[in-house]
């Protein structure tokens, strides 16, 4: 695929894993914190693994916040993965109340019973806008202690098991996934392929 993927380097996240999965999908991949370089990309990735306040501090230090918000407002593609998805929201209560990017309405709150959700889950679609067509037997890998709570119109998929965990959120062409597609084996790879087709088609 002739897609330029820009992985936003905010000094956190499993960057090498994400870089290599997109390389295996024949994308051009750039890992950068430089606005002029990231501007040339078709898709921005906000990687996961880390805490919300630390990530927001780093985004602020690197002067990336207004750049990412503007990118979304211009209806360009963003995919936030795990922590990257949470950063897209208004606030998180992880460690302390911290302001997020505010691109997708909703907040990040502690998982029920304060238990980390670690492992594999099936997904259930919440909307008709289902270009992803995730299969009923497709499991995805989750690893998070906090989760999304927000308006239903931003929710695309949720986990099948209780308690309810929102798995995919979206606003315009900004998408957030609570799971790790890059570490969800064949299901994750298929998800990314479908997502890249959407990026390539431009809507």
């Amino acid at each position: 695929m002739n897609i330029k993927v820009g992985i936003v380097d905010y000094s956190l996240g499993n960057i090498y894993a994400i870089k290599n999965i997109f390389l295996s999908l024949n994308c051009h991949v750039l890992v950068s914190d430089t606005l002029s370089e990231l501007s040339k990309c078709d898709l921005l990735i906000l990687p996961g693994v880390g805490s919300f306040p630390y990530a927001m501090t780093n985004l602020k230090k690197k002067k990336l916040i207004s750049f990412i918000i503007k990118w979304s407002e211009e209806n360009k593609f963003i995919l936030g993965i795990c922590l990257g998805m949470q950063l897209l929201c208004n606030y998180s209560h992880e460690n302390k109340k911290t302001k997020g990017l505010g691109i997708i309405q909703g907040n990040i709150v502690n998982n029920e019973e304060n238990i980390a959700n670690i492992g594999w889950n099936l997904l259930h679609c919440n909307t008709n806008d289902n270009f992803l067509k995730i299969g009923k037997k497709d499991y995805f890998y989750f690893n998070h202690s906090y989760c999304y709570k927000g308006p239903i119109n931003y929710q695309l998929y949720e986990c099948k098991k209780n308690p309810k965990i929102i798995a995919i959120i979206k606003h315009k062409n900004t998408y957030g996934v609570q799971f790790h597609p890059e570490k969800s084996q064949s299901s994750g790879l298929l998800f990314l392929k479908k997502f890249l087709v959407r990026v390539q088609n431009g809507n």
Partner: peptide, 11 residues
């Protein structure tokens, strides 16, 4: 720890 994660390790 942060460097290990950045090399592509989740936990």
């Amino acid at each position: 720890a942060i460097d290990v994660v950045q090399k592509g390790i989740e936990r």
